[in-house]
Structures are given as structure tokens and as C-alpha cells.
Design a protein around this nucleic acid. Structure first.
Lengths: 351, 351
DNA sequence: GGAGGCTGTCGAATCGATTCGACGGATGCG
DNA sequence: CGCATCCGTCGAATCGATTCGACAGCCTCC
């Protein structure tokens, strides 16, 4: 018998009370006498009623208890990035007081019919990443009048933004290399724009991804002429591929490589070893992120440690604040330079 | 002026049509004349109406377009596991035809007030993992009459289950080791139950996690007396810690270790190296999962390759089928044994 | 010219719960 | 003993959209 599920009215009738009272028993918003409560609870279990329908409740309350997290990539891919993983971790923490769930969303729904920014019952949105799609996602959300926070991307306007001192931080790493006497330095960058295929960046204006651009600017502040090869993604094998390109010409190889992520750096190191160079004696490599790269031992990357978890948490807290009617300010986190054993003095022959 | 947002009735009035017609313009469920469509669209944009309220729509339709994915761990932690990541990947694919979003949920909400299985507006649920909490989560969902699929866990009853031939597969690895002449074999297992702290498993009945139990059974089929040390989680460092325990007593150390995951195996290998043993000459190690363990090179694990992505996709498809009114069958995937270079003949002294 | 078929639009009911002001009865206080 | 309070319960309106059968034109075809 697949008769229609019981509603709260059914329960109320069964318990001999009004629907409003029954509702209150479940929400706990108003005191109810013990006797009444029991009658309602009993009626509910007798009818197999398992609590208010979330859909109806969210319509009435105007809240769904769901925060959308918007990625630019394929969902599965997003979690391949340790930084994003950590961020999700923090985000989950940050929205905990709201008791909200996290809904995974893609910014540019390919399937068309999917649940997207515009059709998902979300109370707020967190935009992650920095692609060109960002603007349209942003418009979609703002049009709906939903609180939104952007992580690592230029939102413009009033949108609270959780960011990093990418440029300053990267400049620190570059300065570190210069202090070590390096002159021939190459950069291995993150993708220049959505859908980017690995290749040289010849024109700075071709870079539409904020993070890439900012870190690049920091490196170029110190080494204005450094050749820049942008990988197709933040993966070890992408770093390896980029490294192979950099080390292909033994006569003109860099003595130091500034990688825009730790994973890329790990790949570059591997490429260097493969080409017969020692790290850091022959080649210095710096990373970015400060994550634990499994299997990189005994190397400890010279890198910039970014507070990835804190970023997520801050985003969650910002969203929480806005949902509570408050204002949320943009936050700019600071990276900490950490010197490992992958950077050293430039080779004597090359000073 | 923060006057109330426009509703579809406002739009209809502005356009001079009935609400039903306006609704149809957005849903496209029924043909509408071009002239009418234009009038409605114009009215909508004039009023700043951005489409139907998802909450109201989902109440009426009885669908929210959201599939809940229930993990047993802290959300951030779930994505540390490459297998789960791959699975999410497949799951995202599998529910794509539904156009549904994935809502991340924890099975045992600690905060209490959180959005959980019982309060989230989900159309279906996918339960991941295998902890003891599974049963209660399951009950909660089934009571709500929501389609549910379980990945790697015994759901019992009618619940479709996406599983693996864990026992048979693990037995294969064990047989492989026996064929190589190993007699002193130890097992490094996954956690025995939720909240488990690393330690020996002395009593098989203490294992409540299905995956752990099944793989253990497979290993014990071949080596009934193998000592089993269960780690606290599937991580390299957990494997390392377990390995240190196993190799502590040089006189009585195992010549082969059956690890229940690749990450654990990687840690065990590291522990073996640390203890001065060569792999596979002195110690053979087998893993489980067939993932790419970063930084394990030049080792290639002897392991059982599981179709993690397929598992996710199958779960997604099962959910889709059930939501379409169909039936979904349980599926049992098969692991493929892959011999790498981490297993070899037992040391001659030990035959 | 009238009957029948399409198309496109409309009305009204419905989805299921929440909320807020009102109200009745019991209790406290003078 | 009477009046003011307070606590718990009830009614009724509301959240915003969807859906389905009914219906009005208009065209076609005989």
C-alpha cells in the first residue's frame, strides 16, 4: 500500500491537536506541555511520520540549510587538489554553526539541464577558483539576491573576497632565489585560463586566472624576463612535463625554477633528477601552497605556506555572518615563506 | 528598497497573463506562443525576476534535484582518500542525467542542529562506507521513503548495494604470496570499526566495518593464523606506523605483508626500508585499490585494482533508475590482480 | 457553413509546513 | 475573592510555484 505519506496535519488529527501545535512539537520553537508532546510523538510514530518535509519547511522558512560550493572544474577533479581539499575542510567547519550542508556545483553546467546556481535551493554560495566563468556565476547568484563569497578570485563590487597575498608571497620566493645568486630563472605557472593547454606564456594579458596572474606578477617583479611555462593543471605530472621542457636545452637551462604550486614543483624536481641535475646543487626549485606532498621525501620544498583551511573556514564564517544579517568583510590571508632543502646557491659557474 | 522579491504571479500580472502561463514559459512543459513568451520574459527582466524559486518548485514537484552523499568521516577527510575521490567522480557522472547536485552529508551529525539525512531536501541518498552508523543512517533514509544505494556496506534487505569481491580479491593476493613461498605473513588492515585506534585485532568479531572484515576473511582463507594489525585510517603514515610495529622484532618479522589499501602498503614499504629491509627481496608487500600512489616510484605495488570510478557511476545510475521509477539491482564489481615489483619469492632462509 | 481538431491560455486546487496574534484557563498576588 | 499574568493551544494566512482539466479561438476539411 503505497498510500500517500503522512503529513503533519495527519499527525495532528491523529493526536487530536491542531497542526500548529504538532508543528511546534517538532520544531521546538514554542513550549509545549509534556502530555501534548507525547501524544504527538506517539501519533507520529503510529503513522510512520518521520518529521517535517524539508521541501515544505524550506519554502515556508525561506531557508534550505544548504550552501552551494561552486567549482570550475569537474567535481571529481576538484578534490585532486590538496589545497581545495583542505579548503573544503575549513569550509565545512565554517558553516557548521549554520548547520548547513555543502552542495557541490559546477559553474558552467555542461549538461544544460542540471541543477545549477540558478536552480538549486541554496541559501548562499561560495565561489571557488578564479576562471572567467566566475563573472557569470556571480551575476547569476547575485541576481537571486543570495549572499555570496568568493575564494581566490576578483569578485568586484561588494562581494566579500577571501584571498591571499599571492603577489607579495611569490615575490618573497623570487627574492630568496635572487639572494642565492640565481640569474637564469624560469617560471612554471598554473593554467593561464580555463581550458588552457600547457605552453609558454608570451603575453601577460593572456592570463585570465587571477591566482596565476598575481603569482606571476610577483615573480616578474624580481625577474622581469623570466620565461614562463604554464601547465595545464596543478599536478605532479604536469610539473614533470613542464620541467622536461625547461631542461630540454642543457646549454640554456634555468638554475632555478619558480613553480606556482607544490605539486608542480614536485614534478619539476622529478624532471630535474631525470635530466641528471641535483636539487638544490644544480637546480633550485620553489613551490607554493605548503601542502604535504606525499613521496617527495627526502626533499622539503622551499615554498610559501598558505593557510588553506583557514581560507575555507573564513569563507564559511563570512557566509554565516551574511546569512545572519550581518556584513562580511573581505579577508586577505598571508603566506608564510618556508625555506626547505630544494633551494640553494646558484651553481658557481653561473654566478 | 528591499521590497519583497518578485514572484511568478507578479511577472504574470505585469505581462498580462495568468500565473500558469508564466510558469509554463519558464518550465517549457507546454508550448507557448512566441508573442506570449516574449511578453513574459520582458516582464520578468523588468521586474528583476530570475526564475522560479527552487524551494517552492521543489515542494510542488516533490523533487529537489539533490542527491545526498553520506560519509562517515569528517567531510574534509573523505577526500583525502583517493578511492573516494574517484568514486565521487563517477558518482557525479552517474547522476548527471538527473541533473542533480551532490550534497555532502555526514552520517552522524555531531553538531546536532545540522542538516542531516532527516532534514535535508534530498531526492535520494548514497551511503558511502561501511561503519556501524550505517544502519541508523539507512533507517533514517528508508523511513523517509527515499531511494537509497549503499556503496561498500551491507545494507540488507532491498537496498541496492554496490560492492566489490573483496574477499575473493584479497584471497588472490594471499595466494600469490603463498605461491611465492611466504609463510610468515602479517596483515595491515583498515580500521576495524568507527573510531578505531590503531592496534592488533585479536578477535575477528570485533570487526564491524564490512570492507575490513571481507578483505580480512580473504587473507585468512589462505593464512588463517596471520597476525592482523588494524590501522586507524587509510593513510601512508598509518601504514608506516603499522609497519614499524610489524618490523620491530627482527627475529620474528613477517616476510610478507598484506595491506588492505595501497596507501597503507606504501607506508609499510617505507617502514620496511626504514628497518633496513629491501622490497621485495626481504619483504613482499601487497596493496589494495590500484590507485596511483604519488611518490612511490620506483615501486609499483602488487595490488588489486578496483574500479572505483565505476563504482561511483554505478551508484549514480542506480539512484537515477530508482528515481525514474525503476528498480536497481545490486552490483558486485570485480578487482583485477596486478603484479608489481613489491612482491617476490620469500627469502631463501625462510622457506 | 458547420463539425472536428489543434493550440495556446486560464482557473483553481495543491504541495506541506510555519508563524503570529488571539484566546481560554489556570495560577499568583493583593 | 477578583484581577492581572502567564502558559499552552488553536486558526488562518502564507510561502511560491506547478499542474491538469477546461475552454476559447482558429483553421481545416468536407
Amino acid at each position: 500500500m503505497s498510500t500517500r505519506r503522512a503529513t503533519i496535519s495527519d499527525v495532528a488529527r491523529e493526536a487530536g491537536v491542531s497542526p500548529s501545535t504538532a508543528s511546534v512539537v517538532f520544531s521546538g520553537k514554542t513550549p509545549v506541555s509534556d502530555a501534548t508532546r507525547r501524544r504527538v510523538i506517539d501519533a507520529a510514530s503510529a503513522l510512520g511520520y518521520t518529521g517535517p518535509d524539508p521541501r515544505a519547511a524550506s519554502l515556508r522558512r525561506g531557508r534550505s540549510g544548504i550552501v552551494g560550493v561552486v567549482f570550475e572544474e569537474h567535481l571529481g577533479t576538484a578534490f585532486l587538489d590538496p589545497v581545495k581539499t583542505l579548503m573544503m575542510d575549513g569550509l565545512a567547519d565554517g558553516v557548521a554553526p549554520l548547520g548547513a550542508g555543502l552542495l557541490l556545483l559546477r559553474d558552467h553546467d555542461p549538461s544544460g539541464t542540471g541543477s545549477s546556481l540558478t536552480t538549486a535551493p541554496i541559501d548562499a554560495a561560495v565561489l571557488v577558483g578564479c576562471s572567467g566563468h566566475l563573472r557569470e556565476s556571480l551575476d547569476a547568484v547575485r541576481a537571486r539576491g543570495i549572499p555570496v563569497v568568493v575564494i581566490e578570485g576578483d569578485a568586484g563590487g561588494e562581494v566579500p573576497r577571501i584571498g591571499l597575498d599571492n603577489r607579495e608571497a611569490q615575490r618573497q620566493a623570487a627574492s630568496h632565489l635572487r639572494a642565492l645568486g640565481h640569474r637564469r630563472v624560469a617560471i612554471v605557472a598554473l593554467p593561464a585560463r580555463a581550458g588552457w593547454e600547457a605552453g609558454w606564456i608570451l603575453d601577460g594579458t593572456a592570463v585570465t586566472v587571477d591566482v596565476t596572474r598575481e603569482r606571476l606578477a610577483g615573480a616578474l617583479d624580481v625577474y622581469p624576463d623570466a620565461p614562463t611555462y604554464a601547465a595545464a593543471g596543478s599536478f605532479i605530472d604536469q610539473g614533470l612535463a613542464a620541467g622536461r621542457v625547461l631542461f630540454a636545452d642543457r646549454a640554456d637551462r634555468p638554475t632555478a625554477v619558480i613553480a606556482q604550486s607544490d605539486l608542480l614543483a614536485a614534478g619539476v624536481i622529478r624532471a630535474a633528477e631525470e635530466a641528471g641535475y641535483r636539487v638544490p646543487e644544480d637546480v633550485s626549485v620553489t613551490g607554493f601552497d605548503g601542502i604535504v606532498v606525499d613521496g617527495l621525501a627526502p626533499y622539503e620544498l622551499t615554498t610559501l605556506v598558505q593557510p588553506a583551511t583557514d581560507k575555507g573556514r573564513a569563507a564559511g564564517e563570512a557566509v554565516t555572518a551574511m546569512l545572519d544579517g550581518g556584513e562580511a568583510a573581505s579577508i586577505r590571508f598571508t603566506c608564510e615563506f618556508r625555506e626547505g632543502n630544494t633551494s640553494g646557491p646558484a651553481p658557481a659557474t653561473d654566478r
